[in-house]
């Protein structure tokens, strides 16, 4: 979490930092329009200026993102996420009112894709779906550590693991490039054979 990079890491980071980041500027401008509730030329120009100043004054390393979003699959991802969120809330609600004590587990899930971007999105989505909270993540190996709630019944841990993989697959299929999807499929087949 704390940035304490080695010399080499710092140089690497510096090269990725800063510069002109059009995607981030547009995102800030859209947020600005949401804040003002009104689409006028003045608001659009102001939003772009704010975006430019923010990205230049507080530069973040830009994310390496090679894919392109597929609208239908993104809609599927979002829809499934909301179903999962409702299921998760009902599960926690039931557990909150039931007399039994939950039995928990901490599991390690090495993801199949190798990208900070997918790691982040998968972690975000998994934190809000049934029974899991992300405790730790390792960028070097794209590994997530999750805390699973109420896995007392047999097979529940494996199910939790499979669920993380399903979310990851949905994310990559919705946002990834063709090569990344093919890569994921290949790894999946290899794991099934192994």
């Amino acid at each position: 979490m704390t940035d304490r990079p080695t010399k080499q890491g710092r140089r690497h980071r510096a090269s990725r930092r800063g510069g002109f980041q059009p995607r981030a500027i547009i995102a800030v401008a859209v947020a600005w329009l949401f804040l003002w509730d009104r689409i006028t030329w003045g608001n659009i120009v102001n939003g772009l200026i704010v975006g430019l100043v923010v990205t230049l004054a507080f530069p973040l390393p830009s994310i390496e993102f090679a894919g392109h979003p597929r609208p239908l699959r993104v809609a599927h991802l979002i829809l499934r996420f909301f179903i999962d969120l409702v299921v998760a809330s009902i599960q926690v609600t039931r557990l909150a009112f039931s007399p039994k004590r939950p039995r928990n587990a901490v599991i390690e899930v090495p993801l199949r894709s190798r990208s900070d971007f997918y790691l982040t999105i998968t972690a975000e989505l998994n934190a809000l779906v049934p029974g899991s909270v992300v405790l730790d993540a390792r960028r070097s190996t794209s590994t997530l550590f999750l805390h699973l709630l109420d896995v007392g019944r047999p097979g529940a841990i494996e199910e939790g693991r499979a669920h993380v993989y399903r979310v990851e697959e949905r994310v990559v299929r919705a946002l990834g490039s063709d090569e990344e999807i093919a890569d994921l499929e290949r790894r999946k087949r290899e794991e099934e054979l192994a």
Binding site: L85, A127, L128, V133
Partner: peptide, 14 residues
């Protein structure tokens, strides 16, 4: 850690 589950999911949905 269990309390963390209660803090994230029902709160966000609520």
């Amino acid at each position: 850690l269990s309390r963390l589950h209660a803090a994230t999911k029902p709160q966000t949905l609520g």
